[in-house]
Design a protein around this nucleic acid. Structure first.
Lengths: 232, 232
DNA sequence: GTAATAGTGTCTTTCAGACAATATCGA
DNA sequence: TCGATATTGTCTGAAAGACACTATTAC
């Protein structure tokens, strides 16, 4: 039996399964996404989300972590969560593919490393991605990832994933401002995050890297949910 | 080349892709989930979520709608949204499978129809599912589906998907009470849903099916988000 | 000193929680 | 009439938005 007849004869046809990553970070107060310039057909030369095939004995989450490490050079300290799966029959011209997309949030990293499939990888400000045509259905995946990130920092402590281990309230606020694309009142924001029990935990240290009065340093707290949320 | 060697020789190995459904409804003021008793190996005789293989040229969302219609006999008027994908290498003992799970919310329906794979399908109160052992990783999928439904009715008009086209505020409140498993103050709930612009739209009719003073009938409104949300 | 950022406090408005009171049906 | 549910209203406290003011650094 050949591969081509296989699909017609069994009730569970062969699919290729891939992972695609929406990796977000903040660079120079701008929300950026990691994009690769494809080095192979299809869509050779076009921008795409990093990703690749899931191996035959590999857990799909492990595949996402593997691709993430390949593209960023970093394998820990990142937040990774499943976004959604995309499986239109014609989404990949080569074969029937289902892609499981993941959302990763990273603190500022060194310049990205090109993966095996990619000619070139780059942090692109999200504001500029509107001008780009992405390969496959990656524009949709990116839009879904952005919306997830924007929604989730409202009610979860997830914004801290964009910060180094220790950070100031001002740095955390700049994350919200970059992700939502508008400014927040520093005083009301400070009140909200510091007076919400368990949201932040003081380290005792201070920082003056942003100038002005030294700011207390915090770590992400243990609270999983913010109720009521921070309003956008 | 045989099927077994195929997987070892190509970079994009064959996966089976399935859809699994968490179909929720309210019956006698209780949140219920549609379960099937499996008629085939593996897990023959055990309870499982309804679902099945995605066909070779079928969109994964279309597969979810198809399975939903097969199991419930209803193909429209239901809310269906993607939940998550589950792809541990050992989740199906037969073969490497990735399952795309979907959450469906339905108004009260007739008794379910057994699908092709299923010996028997039944609405099981969610409170009783804790005693059951579900096939595959379906306990996890069910838990994720329940949490999604519970979280989403807080800030979206989704609870109306459990109601008929026209419903009273009291019926809508009973949905929240069934999904969250505790009672809500009828007066405060009424104030919240009727005073939130665009959440409900009055039809002009009234209903006395629940006894007492006739209640105004409403349809779901056009507002997509509730801000601030209804607190659990 | 000035400029910059951190942090506190105050006033107002919005809204949730608790619950009294009234309205309108069926029996 | 009573019993049930619907609907309005009132009081209180929590918390957000707007914004004055003080604190502490670098220069």
């Amino acid at each position: 039996m050949t591969i081509s007849t296989y699909a017609q004869n069994v009730s569970h046809p062969p699919f290729a399964v891939t992972v695609d990553l929406v990796v977000l970070t903040i660079r120079e107060s701008e929300l950026c996404v990691l994009l690769v310039q494809r080095g192979e057909e299809p869509f050779s030369g076009q921008w795409a989300l990093p990703g690749g095939f899931v191996l035959v004995d590999e857990d799909i989450e492990a595949a996402a972590y593997r691709e993430l490490a390949e593209e960023t050079g970093v394998s820990e300290g990142l937040h990774l969560e499943q976004l959604a799966s995309y499986g239109a029959p014609d989404r990949d011209p080569r074969m029937r593919t289902v892609s499981v997309a993941w959302l990763a949030l990273a603190p500022e990293l060194a310049e990205p490393v090109a993966g095996t499939d990619a000619a070139h990888a780059e942090w692109v400000p999200v504001a500029e991605t509107g001008l780009l045509t992405l390969a496959f259905d990656h524009e949709r995946i990116l839009a879904d990832g952005l919306e997830r990130a924007r929604a989730k920092i409202e009610y979860s402590p997830l914004a801290a994933a964009f910060c180094p281990t220790e950070f100031t309230v001002g740095q955390l606020r700049k994350v919200y401002e970059a992700v939502w694309g508008h400014s927040l009142d520093p005083r009301n924001f400070h009140r909200k995050v510091t007076r919400t029990e368990g949201f932040l935990s003081e380290t005792g240290g201070t920082s003056t890297i942003d100038g002005g009065r030294p700011a207390k340093l915090y770590r992400a707290g243990t609270r999983a949910m913010l109720n009521p949320p921070i309003r956008r």
